[in-house]
């Protein structure tokens, strides 16, 4: 039973660690499915986290924080969109620039306003998103096996988490069952086909970029207003890039994206749990190996050693009308 409890604890923490990954990964999915490569997820996550915490500090309310975080992230997304769509820029360069500016600017402003090395003040409970207990969580929690699963894994999360999980079927539905989704999938593969069908490539791509900004902004807000109670410089700590890896690993599809993010979140939780533990005969657990696993798996997949991850065909290529 002890093993089971430990499993529940690690899995629960993996689930929470997966939430920002899911949001950012789906954000990347929308953008890249439309043909706009986004390696700036990391930066936008930071911007969302910072703006969310900063505004919540003043308003004392998580919802205005959420709005601010999302708005700031969308703004940054639009800069990337302008560079990629209108200026036909190298999207990798643009994403790199956004990561740098976001990393520096959030820390700079945080430090200038609060003088705590870039950290924002600890937020009161009322300014955070709280765990929601689903009905019967307490009473049902006593039931063996299913009880703890319901109480700790299914119940007891905040609204952003539930939204993140709801977003997976929503994205799937929007992508495969709506006109917008069809056009979006088409424009990432062959923009000329969309253009000759009389649909604006530009409008589609801008919409995708905005959706991306909203979702990755939410992931940032989750970091500062649900997982922590403040913003801290560099607090995204590479999650944007893990989300990018998950996106590649999931081959740009929503359900596999969920599975991959859960796996990566679980690996993260496991490495935290195993930190400092000594295995008999082996010595300290090399937790770094677990940390590196998502990245290594992604490279192996990209290289075609296990399956093949083929990105949307037009991703990263500015659309220029041709004969």
């Amino acid at each position: 039973m002890e093993g089971f409890d430990a499993f529940i604890v690690v899995f629960g923490s993996g689930l929470r660690l997966a939430v920002p990954l899911i949001l950012a990964c789906l954000a990347g999915l929308w953008s890249e499915r439309s043909g706009i490569v986004d390696i700036g997820l990391e930066g936008k996550m930071l911007v969302g986290a910072f703006a969310g915490a900063a505004i919540a500090t003043f308003t004392g309310d998580p919802w205005t924080g959420l709005l601010a975080g999302v708005a700031a992230s969308v703004l940054v997304s639009l800069i990337h969109g302008y560079a990629s769509i209108d200026q036909r820029a190298n999207q990798i360069v643009s994403g790199t620039a956004i990561n740098m500016v976001a990393d520096g600017l959030t820390a700079l402003i945080g430090n200038a306003v609060w003088s705590q090395g870039g950290r924002t003040p600890q937020l009161p409970d009322s300014a955070l998103f709280h765990a929601i207990d689903l009905p019967f969580a307490q009473s049902f929690g006593g039931v063996p096996i299913l009880g703890p699963i319901y109480r700790h894994l299914i119940s007891g999360h905040d609204i952003v988490t539930y939204f993140a999980f709801a977003l997976v079927p929503l994205t799937y539905w929007a992508l495969y069952s709506t006109r917008f989704g069809l056009r979006l999938r088409a424009v990432g593969e062959n923009p000329a086909a969309v253009d000759t069908a009389g649909i604006s490539v530009r409008a589609l791509r801008y919409s995708a970029v905005v959706i991306c900004g909203v979702l990755v902004g939410l992931s940032g807000v989750y970091l500062s207003l649900a997982q922590a109670a403040y913003f801290q410089p560099h607090m995204s700590a590479g999650k944007g890039f893990i989300a990018l890896a998950a996106l590649v690993f999931a081959k740009w599809r929503p359900w596999p994206a969920l599975a991959t993010c859960l796996l990566f979140g679980f690996l993260d939780a496991l490495s935290i749990r195993l930190q400092g533990m000594v295995l008999p005969g082996i010595g300290p657990v090399p937790v770094q190996a677990i940390e590196a696993l998502p990245y290594l798996l992604t490279v192996v997949l990209l290289a075609g050693f296990i399956g093949k991850a083929t990105p949307p065909r037009a991703s990263g290529i500015p659309y220029v009308k041709e004969r």
Partner: peptide, 14 residues
């Protein structure tokens, strides 16, 4: 870091 990012943005992407 901000300046560095802006240089990449203006001298590279834009």
């Amino acid at each position: 870091v901000v300046i560095q990012g802006l240089v990449v943005l203006f001298a590279g992407a834009l």
